[in-house]
């Protein structure tokens, strides 16, 4: 499988901290662990750090129970800070 891209979606405080709604993340053919992408986000957007610590993570619409899950080319990976509806 060729290398490809994961689309990272940012919401609420994560969106404000990074100054963007999404990020395209290059991944190798075998993918990357979610924790590696989170570490990369932390390095690229230092203001995101505190938000990343308190967020849940969603791959293709499903919550991740562990960040060792691999993200593969074509996946959508969402950062969910604590919810604030109502």
């Amino acid at each position: 499988m060729p290398e490809g891209r994961v689309t990272v979606l940012l919401f609420g405080p994560a969106r404000e901290a990074a100054g963007r709604t999404s990020v395209v993340w290059e991944v190798p053919a075998g993918g990357l662990r979610a924790e590696e992408v989170v570490a990369g986000l932390r390095a690229r957007y230092p203001r995101l750090g505190p938000t990343l610590d308190s967020s849940r993570y969603v791959r293709n619409g499903r919550y991740l129970s562990t960040l060792t899950t691999r993200l593969r080319p074509g996946d959508e990976f969402a950062v969910h800070p604590p919810y604030g509806g109502g």
């Binding site: 969106r15 604030g84 109502g86």
Partner: peptide, 24 residues
Amino acid sequence: LIEELKATVPIWKTERRRGSGRRA
């Protein structure tokens, strides 16, 4: 309904203030 929505539905709000401030 309202308590579950607030706690578990992925919705976020960002404040726009009369000054220039924003706060999530």
